[in-house]
């Protein structure tokens, strides 16, 4: 098992916390930034998974073999970076499209949420009415 040094653990925690915080925002731009930051966090984690030599170039001839970084996590992180890059541009386009169609880029409520809220409002209205009736009866 590979372990992580404290600094990196704190950096990772910071990246994930910031990322998830931004992910929970309403504006799609912030969500996008959140995804980007989370992606950086995940890629850093992949790098660190390579062990204590992480961060050195995994090139034959640049260092003795035992001081070389594990190339596999680097390859995986590279692939992940490419994927994040593609998806970031896609989200950017989507945010622009949403802005163009709706005039804002806010993520709206779930359909079920809106239905429940409408029901709740109706129920509350009905409750108020019965209470008013009861009140008027009581004053009479």
């Amino acid at each position: 098992m590979n372990t992580v040094n404290l600094t990196m653990a704190i950096v990772l925690g910071g990246l994930y916390a910031t990322g998830f915080y931004l992910l929970l925002q309403r504006s799609l731009m912030r969500v996008l930034l959140g995804i980007v930051i989370l992606g950086h966090g995940a890629n850093l984690l992949l790098q660190l998974a390579g062990g204590s030599q992480a961060g050195r170039p995994p090139m034959l001839g640049d260092a003795p073999i035992e001081r070389m970084a594990d190339p596999l996590p680097q390859a995986m992180a590279l692939t992940a970076i490419v994927i994040t890059f593609a998806l970031t541009t896609f989200l950017l386009a989507l945010a622009y499209r949403a802005w163009q169609l709706l005039g804002h880029d806010e993520v709206q409520d779930d359909v079920e949420d809106r239905r429940i809220r409408r029901l709740e409002a109706e129920l509350a209205e009905a409750d108020e009415e019965t209470e008013r009736e009861l009140d008027s009866e009581a004053t009479r």
């Binding site: 593609a86 541009t89 950017l92 386009a93 622009y96 163009q100 169609l101 709706l102 005039g103 804002h104």
Partner: peptide, 25 residues
């Protein structure tokens, strides 16, 4: 891909904005 991005996200958006009634609806 980069050229396509320039076409759609770059000049496509510029054209949208320049078009009459461009910008958000």
């Amino acid at each position: 891909v980069v050229l396509d991005l320039l076409r759609t996200l770059g000049s496509g958006i510029e054209a949208d904005i320049a078009a009459p009634g461009g910008g958000p609806r």
